[in-house]
């Protein structure tokens, strides 16, 4: 009966419904302080980070178990990334970068659980993160170098007549950074989830032929898992690159 109804209605796909932000507690409209589904999944992200970082290192072993080894691996990975990309003098900013990395990676991966929600698929979240990075590195650049930070836009290795033109391009590219930084992450997260939802809708109406979209969902899910890690890495390494420009603006 239900199948007949579906057939009568035709194929209706709502891949964007999964991104709707709704209050979790109560039936009222969404207001700025409502405990929404995005807030709930950010809270779950926080719990995940606590379990990973705090519980994983509770034994403080010289010879680490598997869990502690993974935690130390991630710690070393992010620390080396900061040091290699932005230099040793960027290490004081390591906790901020580690925070961003943990938030993004846990949001991305937890968002792959069926029926869950991905906060990083929303431009508001990623733009806030990217703007925080943008404003922070700009302030750090001016605090460390004063007006010398503007040397970032003046490419002294280029021929003199070209320098003003390049300076305009550099300034534009600098201000585009937070946009590309945020849209890249949100876009990747949104696209993968929407695609999975579209395939799932196909599976719902294809009867026995559903195995084709199910196989496709499995393949895309694997790809999305990879994308979740890669996008967290890309977001973090770009943060390090921007920080490096703030600490060493000379070309």
């Amino acid at each position: 009966m239900a199948t007949e109804t579906e057939a009568q209605k035709g194929l209706e796909i709502h891949p964007m419904d999964q991104f709707l932000i709704k209050p979790v507690l109560g039936d009222g409209p969404l207001v700025w302080y409502s405990f929404s589904n995005t807030a709930m999944w950010m809270a779950i992200t926080l719990v995940g980070v606590i379990i990973f970082l705090v519980v994983g290192t509770r034994k403080k072993s010289y010879v680490p178990d598997r869990f502690q080894m993974v935690v130390e691996l991630i710690y070393g990975f992010v620390r080396n990334m900061v040091q290699d990309v932005a230099g040793r003098d960027a290490l004081p900013f390591f906790p901020y970068i580690m925070t961003a990395f943990m938030f993004v990676i846990f949001s991305n991966v937890l968002g792959l659980i069926p029926m869950s929600f991905t906060p990083t698929s929303h431009i508001a979240v990623t733009a806030t993160l990217a703007l925080t990075v943008f404003i922070s590195v700009t302030v750090i650049g001016f605090v460390k170098h004063g007006l010398g930070f503007l040397g970032l836009f003046w490419i002294s290795s280029a021929p003199l007549p070209l320098r003003p033109v390049l300076a305009v391009i550099e300034v534009m590219s600098y201000f585009v950074r937070p946009i590309s930084h945020s849209i890249r992450l949100a876009g990747n997260m949104m696209a993968g989830h929407a695609m999975i939802k579209v395939f799932a809708a196909f599976a719902g109406v294809m009867g026995l032929g559903a195995f084709v979209p199910i196989i496709a969902i499995s393949a895309v899910y694997g790809l999305e898992l990879l994308v979740a890690f890669i996008q967290a890495y890309v977001f973090t390494i770009l943060t390090c690159v921007y920080l490096k420009d703030a600490l060493h603006p000379q070309h």
């Binding site: 932000i21 969404l30 207001v31 700025w32 302080y33 409502s34 405990f35 929404s36 995005t38 807030a39 950010m42 906060p119 929303h122 508001a124 979240v125 806030t128 993160l129």
Partner: peptide, 8 residues
Amino acid sequence: NQILWLVV
């Protein structure tokens, strides 16, 4: 709403 909870 998103920015508030993100900051928190």
